[in-house]
């Protein structure tokens, strides 16, 4: 490894501008989605296994507060990851790749994610 590369930066000493925070949120939401996959695959498996399995998943999502929280958490992580991902694809298309554009897109990402997180909560409850 070339020792001149600026790696191992101490993240605790760096001030994070908004685009950096949305980038971190994108990563965190991705990790959460991966961990939560076990619930998503369980629900898909169970719901397709039999009419009883389908009812079990539906009743769990309708009545179990913990299941609702997991569903809301997964939908929220999905929303954040989706919006931040679209932002990434826009950057790849060279749309808004200026300092102002980056900040503006980060602001839009935060607002759009927040709206979707609230809507996901409304949907689950």
């Amino acid at each position: 490894m070339n020792s001149k590369r600026p790696i191992n930066l101490d993240l605790a000493t760096i001030q994070f501008p908004l685009p950096a925070l949305t980038s971190i949120a994108h990563r965190i939401s991705g990790v959460i989605l991966f961990i939560g996959l076990i619930f998503a695959f369980w629900a898909l498996d169970k719901s397709l296994s039999s009419p009883q399995g389908f009812d079990a998943v539906r009743d769990t999502l309708a009545h179990n507060i913990l299941a609702k929280l997991v569903a809301w958490g997964m939908l929220s992580a999905l929303a954040v990851h989706f919006v931040a991902g679209v932002k990434h694809l826009l950057m790849d298309l060279h749309i808004g790749v200026t300092l102002e554009g980056g900040l503006r897109k980060a602001q839009i990402t935060v607002v759009a994610s927040a709206v979707l997180v609230i809507l996901a909560g409304v949907w689950v409850w």
Binding site: I7, N8, G30, V31, F34, L37
Partner: peptide
């Protein structure tokens, strides 16, 4: 796609934060 996406994404995250 999910398998590929998760693998690439988590590889990036683990290489960035578990670098020591």
């Amino acid at each position: 796609s999910l398998a590929a996406h998760a693998w690439v994404g988590l590889w990036i995250v683990t290489t960035d934060y578990l670098n020591k």
